[in-house]
Design a protein around this nucleic acid. Sequence first.
DNA 1: ATTCTGACGTGGG
DNA 2: CCCCACGCCAGAA
Length: 111
Amino acid sequence: MGEPGFFQQVYEVAKLIPYGRVTSYGAIARYLGAAGSARMVGWAMNGSHGMEDVPAHRVVNRKGLLTGKHHFKGTNLMQQLLESEGVEVVDNQIQDFERLFWDPNSLREAT
DNA sequence: ATTCTGACGTGGG
DNA sequence: CCCCACGCCAGAA
């Protein structure tokens, strides 16, 4: 079971994203040691469709833009999910992105 | 087997 | 701040 595939890794990390928080593809990629392969994270999320355990809507690009919103069922489903969690989104741009940004690498530091 | 794409990131101007 | 070009590597055709 738990095959540590790249996709599975991405899913596991995405599940760790706290409620009302967001992170970037690059942050996850770097956490997996695949810094530079941020594209793969997004590609992996492609297979996350149907996985409610994987909050793909909490994963955005490094600008805090909802680049992948077009891949959700609804055109603005991603934004709705984020706003549902208290994340303010305007014109596909997350407000206070730096404040809501959550870096998975912070897990390793564990204070 | 090859070729292209892709929900990104970084660097340079 | 913005825009352009390159790199990255796994999956799909």
